[in-house]
Amino acid sequence: MSRRTRLLVFLVGGGVLAAAFVVGVLGIPGFGGSEHRYRDLAVPAAVAHRTANAVAAVNFDQRAIDTFGEETILIASTLGAVALLRPSREETVRRPPDLGHTLESTRLIGYVLMPLTLVLGTDVVAHGGITPGGGFQGGVVLATGLHLLYVTGSYPALDRLRPLLPFRTAEALGAAAFGVVGALALIGTGTFLGNALPYGSLGQIFSTGTVQVLNLVVGIEVFGSMVVLLAAFFEQEISVRKQDEEAR
């Protein structure tokens, strides 16, 4: 299909979609209105399970099975990307030279911010059930903190501080633990991923039952996934060379 035909096909299809969308939008309740039926059901359900962060209650309690599916997508995509980025037969992995041309100030900020970011990430995961945040967000913050080492200009340092095996294991165990918690809840309550643990009082860190546990395992899994994923991209870009390039 030539570019012209493709554009024409898109203009026709996109035009129809746009028209249907506008007609649909004009028929739904206006923006910012006070009628939210899901909210009216979800918020009391969250409060009943003493989960102060209603979004976490939806993700890890009311819709926990969907989050399980989402977590599986996460691990499957990571696996796929890592498999695709593996060095092929005609490529070799070599140690990259340390090309440290970083400003001292950049380096300083990196070294100061790395521990702070790791603490912040842990905090976001740990308080996922009661304040904004949770396992997904905290896991990404943790991985970002670790990769500040790369921003400070030292790939070899990142390579040393980040042995991949523990992160691969953490990723797999995190994903598996989600299923195990679900199965234990099935035995305890008769519902897969039902909230099986006793509740505390609203706003306390261990008040939310299994929400907090699931937040933690998701945090571990996301941290592991992000590190493994970025490591695959880094390796492909920095250490992997074709053999004939190496010979030159």
Binding site: H36, Y38, R39, D40, A42, V43, P44, A46, V47, A52, N53, A54, V55, A57, V58, I130, T131, P132, L202, G203
Partner: peptide, 16 residues
């Protein structure tokens, strides 16, 4: 839609 000691649970929140 996040509650605590200062914000008592209420329905005047955006949809979680």
């Amino acid at each position: 839609p996040v509650f605590g000691s200062t914000t008592k649970p209420n329905l005047h929140v955006v949809d979680p």
